[in-house]
Design a protein around this nucleic acid. Sequence first.
RNA 1: GGGCCUGUAGCUUAGUCAGGUAGAGCGAUGGACUCUUAAUCCAUCGGUCGCGGGUUCGAACCCCGUCAGGCCCGCCA
Length: 501
Amino acid sequence: MHWADFAAKTLAQRGSKHIIASGITPSGEFHIGHLREILTGDMITRACKDAGLEAEFVFIVDTADPLRKVYPFLSEEYSKYIGCPLAKIPAPDENGKPSNGERNYAEHFLDPFLKALEQIDVRPRIIDNYKSYESGKFAEKSRIACEKHNEIRDIIETISGRELAEDWFPFNPYGHDGSLDRVTVTGFEWPYVYWVQDGVEGKSDLNKAEGKLPWRIDWPAKWGWVGVTCEPFGKDHGAAGGSYATGKEISKLFGDNPPHPLVYEWISLKGQGAMSSSTGNTIGPLEALELVPPQVLRYLIASTKPKKAITFDAGMSLVELADEFERLASRDIDAEMQNDDLSRRQKVALEDAEGALRMSRIGDKTESIVSFRHLSMLAQVKSDEEIITSYGSNLRDRLDRMKNWIQGPYFPEELRIKVLDAINPNADKDITMRLHSYLSECEWDAKSIGDSISLCFRESEISPRDGYKALYNAILGVDKGPRLAPILSELDRERVLTLLG
RNA sequence: GGGCCUGUAGCUUAGUCAGGUAGAGCGAUGGACUCUUAAUCCAUCGGUCGCGGGUUCGAACCCCGUCAGGCCCGCCA
């Protein structure tokens, strides 16, 4: 059974109505790693619906989280915003300086991500955390947290095994400068938390966004008022003593039923370690979508069990992934399932494949007749019109993406068609000399070139196999390759003749 | 120090929860297609299941130990 279906089955035992949640802090550029968070949630939601459950997917954007530090992509001017909620900070401009524009910091990074999600057919209900504090959604949980601060302290200290500071309090007010830093809570009397920052005293109303719950409490509080029944999260939250472990207990303290967890591994970039918004070591979803169709990105997540680490590579691995998806999409899985000779293992594999495909599909079942590998070759040697004419206009979209890929930095060298610059001594001289004379006389278009090559082989009694091998070696330096005539017709006749010796 | 996750063919991996002859894709190799799609089709090769013990008629799977990598136990999402 596919992992998403398995999760749905587990949820079915809990009830028939579900809210699956994902949460991300928009502290920097979104990347493929964040896509795993979102897609994992989206796929569980899809699986729940397939299983006949009522399910809604929500994306909680942690806009109330403070700016932690001045990231490398920000200018020093941001230091004055450290500790302030991302929703109240101006977006950086192209130089990393605070802009005067309309958009805040959180929106600046969130908007492009939401556009990518739309392409990928993920349409969650968006919950803005800061606005939720503003409208009092957190008030009730905040009240309980403040009233039961000793129990909460006990839960965190016992489960995480760490000691909290003497002046720790389960609610962080924003001080007079709007920052959470250097603020000490001095008292609580509903609905106010009293505090002092740099000698300045003040109070924060729990009904408004005048402070926020610390992460380990904020999370279970959201579970409660949103009604979350399932949430996937990264392995960092999942470890023993981590925020899920404490959140689960705090959730019970709030009188709620903690959501079903699903821990997923991280995505790293090939050869560069974990993806990280703060170091700029990222590939964004939009960037990836310029190379492959959205189904392939969905398939990347769908075909890998959540606990498996993914090493993302926008080169050859992505070509293989895309082709694997196309092959799978063109199979008739239902028919294959009818085969009674299948072993238990083969059956399981088939079920997983069916599930991964179901989780990856967007809209109609449009399969393609051309593999990515093949398309990469066609795109290098033929004009768009020729390709569209032979394969149909529904290839347009993929062709455009392929062209981006070829022109960009990620296109694998092994797929690049490289014409030699000098005579290849490994090519059969005898054969290439004969081709030389035939090709110096024919018309210089693809058809004539092809005909001349055939004619040459026939009249010289050279087997096509040996003949093409020699020709490929002379032009491209390899034993076999794509259709040569169209490539030759794109080159100067003189250059070709030179290579033939 | 304590805990969690991962380790299976050259590569990516299924199978571990419910123990029963190790499955697949890619790549590689060979062949077919009487002028070559990096196409397609067929076949073949390829695995001490990280390592060592134990339980069992039988272990990739359960138990103990061990090695390697990642992560958490810092209001850090």
